[in-house]
Amino acid sequence: MAPRRGPAGKSKAPAFSCKLDKDLGELSEMLVALEEFAEEHGVSPLQTQRITLSVDELVTNIIKYGTRALEHTHIHLWATIVDGTFHIEIEDHGIPFDPFHEAPVPDTTLPLEERPIGGLGVFLVQSLMTTTNYERIKDRNRITLTRSLSAGDQEEAQ
């Protein structure tokens, strides 16, 4: 994993980018670096946790399922903060999969004995982020997330 920091292109917006192997250890290191980036740029601890958890859930799925058949592949992540919004882009070369439309939606009202084990990750991302988007571009999956930093810091995410 090689986190690089600094201005993206000509923009002066704070930027973070990283290329990682499909490896859960690298993912853990990347999340810590992303957390540091957010905190360095004044993102509150609660918002930072919402962002890192969302990236974690999506990249975990990419590593465990989406890129399972690929021996060597990389996952790219870019993040930037513009006008009070945290933007994230994640790209991988795995099988085409739109998590926001193809992942089953869990029923969070079921009693304990009927609750299935698992299946919460994507639902958490959709609840914690302001917008979520998926595109298939040639051989790549691209996920775009935004989190507004100005609103919702004190109340619960909807």
Binding site: L46, L120, L124, E156
Partner: peptide, 15 residues
Amino acid sequence: EHILEVFKISGFNQI
């Protein structure tokens, strides 16, 4: 706080 938020979203606070 951030962990409690995720537990509430998941309905874990109900079960």
